[in-house]
Design a binder for these strands. Sequence first.
DNA 1: TTGAAAGCGTTACCAC
DNA 2: GTGGTAACGCTTTCAA
Lengths: 339, 339
Amino acid sequence: MSATIKDVAKMAEVSISTVSRVINDSKPVSPEVRKRVLEVIDELGYKPNEVARTLVTKKSFLIGVIATDIGNSYVAQIIRGIEEVGKMYNYDILLCSSYGDKETELKFIQLLNRKQVEGIILISEIINEKVKEQIDQQNIPFVYLNKYFYMENVLTVSIDDLDASYEMTNYLISLGHKNIIYVSTHENEEYSLEKFKIEGYKKAIDEFGEGDELICFAKGCSIEDGYDIGKEVEDLVEKYDATAVFLSHDELAIGLINYFYDCGVKVPDDISVAGYGDIKISQILRPKLTTIKEPYYDIGAVAIRKIIKELKEEKFDKGNIKLPFQIKKRESCGKIQAE
Amino acid sequence: MSATIKDVAKMAEVSISTVSRVINDSKPVSPEVRKRVLEVIDELGYKPNEVARTLVTKKSFLIGVIATDIGNSYVAQIIRGIEEVGKMYNYDILLCSSYGDKETELKFIQLLNRKQVEGIILISEIINEKVKEQIDQQNIPFVYLNKYFYMENVLTVSIDDLDASYEMTNYLISLGHKNIIYVSTHENEEYSLEKFKIEGYKKAIDEFGEGDELICFAKGCSIEDGYDIGKEVEDLVEKYDATAVFLSHDELAIGLINYFYDCGVKVPDDISVAGYGDIKISQILRPKLTTIKEPYYDIGAVAIRKIIKELKEEKFDKGNIKLPFQIKKRESCGKIQAE
DNA sequence: TTGAAAGCGTTACCAC
DNA sequence: GTGGTAACGCTTTCAA
């Protein structure tokens, strides 16, 4: 068994109160006594038991993070942000992976609660109505992070999707593209953020574009879905003489580029492709993907900073914190030469 | 404040002992009393405080994971394995990222100790002599996971690098390649696993190859390092008429393929490239990378399963658990036609 | 089958 | 400046 505060007190011949004082620097202790206690602590290799501490102080210095899957690079980036900022304030991360299951999300919220976490960050990719209910029961700082769907009456951190989509479309227009296809997803699903992205795209086409609104829907948001929509996109390209495709997720864009690669269509020479997100591989792939950088790390960082602030001020906010995005101009989108 | 066991006891008009018994099913409780208690628990929304529980039972159901960086996909995969198996046994993950800093690794081992984790898994990429020392002090199940270096007298989980490297080289030989370059890394560094990989490569060349041993060293293990070694590899290819390059890490292979892409050298038509690891993007890139699959998920899964077993049996092992690997035959390596 | 009480390792309050 | 002690929320003897 490792040494406890009692062992230290006994060996240093002081009371446990005194030992507590020196390890916490909470009240004045005479230099000699302090020195003696410190020596004993060192000798015994005493380390305070954080569990006991938590029990009395009610501060676990634990933040629960429920993620869909840390295998997704963007999720990992968010968690990096959470963890790194958390550590600055001595907070640690209790990690749970839901793999997109609603019941699991709910179960973990309860679990984390029992483990006395001080706040919860949920990185989700689905809509789960019961989450709010569950969270409200526990009166704990909560941040909801979701690239795909929005939830009302909770605190979220994200970029302005309408604006981002608008900017990217304008960028493509500025390159000389006239007919730009937008590949969306989650067709007709409620709470989908695609609503805003499509709006941004339409707004740009409407204001500055010369061609039509060309929109199609992928089945999902994976690389495979991007590959699978390839044929449809190709048809659209031919029919409308489109020169650029803007997809609502990097994964879709990568899948489409792979499809084009397999068909012998050259990106960006034959067609330009733009993504959304700037996930890690987007900069590794050749051609490098032109995309919108969602600042995942910062999203995580802001989320936990907000939680820590709420903990301090003891008031829990709602609403959406908007972070700036960037248009990453890389190889997959080329200029159209005026004829 | 949320309800405690006392609140439940009072409201159900029983003692807290009884309440404890019903929530733990530890001792017989009469049906009527049990029912009443259960009702109150439900009414109050009572959730046992795991912190208090841990304090008395000494079981935190927490496993500490110190990782270099969960942004690396292989690390994320390992953690998935850890977490998923952990959850099967009700264990949760306390995550710490070291970003490759020795002091940070040490600091986290202590921190996790204070947080009363029941075991620690360290996913490292460096050699840190003091780790063993630190761990030995705390007498706690420990697993050391490192793709790059080995440590003696600790429990590790990995594949057999000599064997894997041997198999891959043989595969390349079987494709008809005569002069095969091996790109290593960590030149002359002690405890580097490259030792075994090089040995495997040499063994295969020696037994079945027709060409010379062609070995060069990259500066590190990143994609950039793979790109940077490109020129040297190209020279070697020309000088020895090599037709295949086997690199000790997928990242290096990807960097090299990118280098070749930028030079107009076609993979696998002009040259075959093989990697090591099978990180996530290896299957996404075009051409898809031929590589050795290190079973990251399983490595994590086995690591935690071992810890849980040690916890149960109260004996801590050392040694290296070897897991099977696979040669993933994909697009980046082609056959050499007999002339 | 049930309850009282000790104890887990701390902090925090109250005396001195 | 220091020590004694209640309390945190729970499990676990021990008696009844």
